[in-house]
Structure formats: C-alpha cells, structure tokens
C-alpha cells in the first residue's frame, strides 16, 4: 500500500514538474535584417545561437535572415519589414531606424560594447590572379584602363566604406586639399563601369561575371572570394591606408516588443560578443573585438593603417551629409 502511494506520489511529482516544462517550451521566430555579405556569418551564428538558447531555456529559436544593401535594408525596416534585430553595415543606417522609424531609442549605440559593433572589418582590394594591372594601392585605381568594381554608395553600406577609404587615402596623399581629393575620387569612379546595389552583388559581378580588374571589398568578403568562391583565382591587395569598418547591431525595440521577442533578441546580440560568437565571426573573416579571440586569429588579418569614421570624418551623420546625401560629393563626382 505504501509502495503504491509512493509510486503515485512520484508519478504525480514527475508530471507536476515535467508538464509545466513541456508546456512552457516555446517556438520562437526571430528575423535578423542584415547587410549583403553577412550571409555566411549569420548562417553559422544562427545555428549556434539556436543550440545555445535551446540548452539554456528549452525554447526553440528559428532565426530567419534577410540580406541586401545596408541602406536598402534600413529603409525596408522603416517601411514595415518586421525585423526583430538589425545588423547593418554602418551606424548611419541604424540611426535611420531611430530618426525616421522611431523604432529604437536614441541611445541604441550605447547598449552594447564597442559602440554596438561586435566585430569589425576594413576595406581591401581584390584583384585577379597574378595582378595583371599591377595594382598596389589606391592611386593605381585611377589609372586609365583600370576597371574598378564597387557597389552604389546610395544603397550599399560597404560602398560607403569603400568611398570613405579612398577619400581618406586621397586626402592624406594630397595634403588635405579637398579639391584634389574630390578629383581623385572622381577619377576613381570614372573607372567604375557598373554600380551594383550591394556588396555581395558586386562580388558576384567581379568573381562570377568576370567584370573588372579590381574589386573594392570588405575584407571578409575578399577572404571569402579568395578562399571559397574562387580558390586560386584572386589575390588580396592590402592598401597602405584603409578605414576601420564597424558594422553595428541593435534590437529593433518596437518590433521585438510587438512580437514578444525582446529577451531573446537581446540575448541573440549579446551572444555575438561571447567567445563562441566571436570565434564564428573570426572564422567568417570578421575581425573579432574580444581580445582573447582577436589574439588567436591575429595572423589571419593583415596589419593595416586604419582611419576611423569618428576621428577622421566627424562621425557618420557628418560623413553621410557631406558625401552621400543628395547633392553630396558622391553626386558631384559621379555626375561629372
């Protein structure tokens, strides 16, 4: 009798504990709206995070991703694309979510370490095997007959980094003479035969369509092209000066709140800063910000003299207005 009572009590206890757990387990869906070249990074990262979150909470997270030119993606979110998190190419595009969409708070950039940029990158030059046009630095790109592939700064975040890297080089080279700098960048863009909408499309144009002599690329994209898209067909040229690209991330608060995904969205971004998240970033050729992982992958990334957007261009708001707004320097030089 006692045994029967005990068995019943145990069963009841087991059901009593197990049932709520089973009932509480949720299927959660997150949408990460990102820029063009992060497909591979987030494919790996999303799988790792889902595994991590399942182990931690018992909830199954499915992360969907949307990729495109950073500027275009920001506009899509403002126009109603239901992004729980945004992982864009530059802070200006994330700022738009606040300014035009009122979707995130003003202080979004202070919510995560390193100005909310869990990884960084820079801009390098990708040339064809043997470097037939003998391209070594930015000034080789303005020579007649050199065909340069870069996306459109109006739609692509990567393209804006490309543009500013070239500008910074010319500025330094020409002793801060803005007219000469503008002329230099103008000559460079005269050598650009087509403007694609995003960095990945430009990579496809250069790698698969075989157009152009040199691709201005995110460092991670250049590595990807060299090591995975066309093994042995390309070489990376590290210019004498480039720019520190800091792609930021944020929870899209209003959307996440509406979806009830605030906690998991926040955890998703925080996981980017963990050792595992940083490892995944490094393996996908993004420069990690966590010192231990950065040290581990130190040899993978060439040392480059880097300018910074805040120090050398006065921040993204100033740079955007001066160079990429309607009538800015890009419009001036590209119309010529």
């Amino acid at each position: 009798m006692k045994k029967s009572l005990l068995a019943i009590a145990l069963l009841a206890a087991a059901f009593g504990t197990a049932t709520p757990l089973t009932a509480a387990a949720k299927d959660i869906s997150l949408l990460n709206v990102s820029y063009d070249p992060t497909r591979e990074l987030y494919q790996d990262f999303n799988a790792a995070f889902s595994k991590f979150w399942l182990a931690k909470t018992g909830d199954k997270v499915t992360v969907k991703a949307s990729h495109g030119g950073s500027g275009k993606q920001a506009r899509a979110i403002i126009d109603g694309l239901d992004a729980d998190v945004a992982t864009l190419a530059l802070a200006y595009d994330v700022d738009q979510l606040q300014e035009k969409g009122k979707l995130i708070p003003k202080d979004w950039q202070t919510r995560l370490p390193h100005n909310s940029s869990p990884y960084t990158s820079t801009i390098v030059l990708l040339v064809r095997k043997g470097n037939p046009k003998n391209i070594k630095d930015w000034d080789d790109l303005i020579k007649p007959g050199v065909s340069v592939i870069t996306p459109n700064p109006k739609t692509s975040g990567g393209a804006r980094w490309n543009y500013l890297a070239a500008w910074a080089y010319a500025q330094k080279h020409d002793g801060n003479d803005e007219a000469k700098t503008k002329e230099f960048v103008g000559k460079l863009f005269k050598n650009v035969p087509v403007l694609d909408t995003g960095a990945r499309v430009s990579t496809t144009t250069f790698v698969e369509r075989g157009i152009g002599d040199v691709l201005l690329a995110w460092e991670n994209e250049a590595f990807l092209a060299q090591k995975e898209l066309g093994v042995g067909k390309f070489e990376i040229i590290v210019p004498s000066l480039s720019i520190l690209a800091e792609p930021p991330v944020t929870v899209v608060d209003k959307v996440a709140k509406r979806h009830g995904t605030e906690v998991v969205a926040k955890a998703y971004l925080e996981y980017l800063y963990t050792e595992e998240g940083q490892e995944i970033a490094a393996k996908n050729y993004y420069r990690p910000t966590l010192t231990s992982v950065a040290k581990k992958y130190e040899a993978q990334f060439p040392k480059v003299n880097l300018v910074k957007i805040d120090e050398d261009f006065g921040g993204w708001q100033v740079a955007q207005k001066k160079h990429f707004s309607d009538g800015g320097t890009f419009d001036q030089i590209y119309q010529k």
């Binding site: 087509v194 144009t205 369509r209 157009i211």
Partner: peptide
C-alpha cells in the same frame, strides 16, 4: 571587347532591376 560585352550585359540587367 569581352569586358565591354559583359559590362553592357550587366548594365542591361541593372537597368531591368
């Protein structure tokens, strides 16, 4: 010529896009 053809091809695609 090959480059020009490819560029024109791509420009056509971009125009369509």
């Amino acid at each position: 010529l090959d480059q020009k053809v490819k560029i024109l091809d791509r420009k056509g695609e971009l125009a369509e896009e």
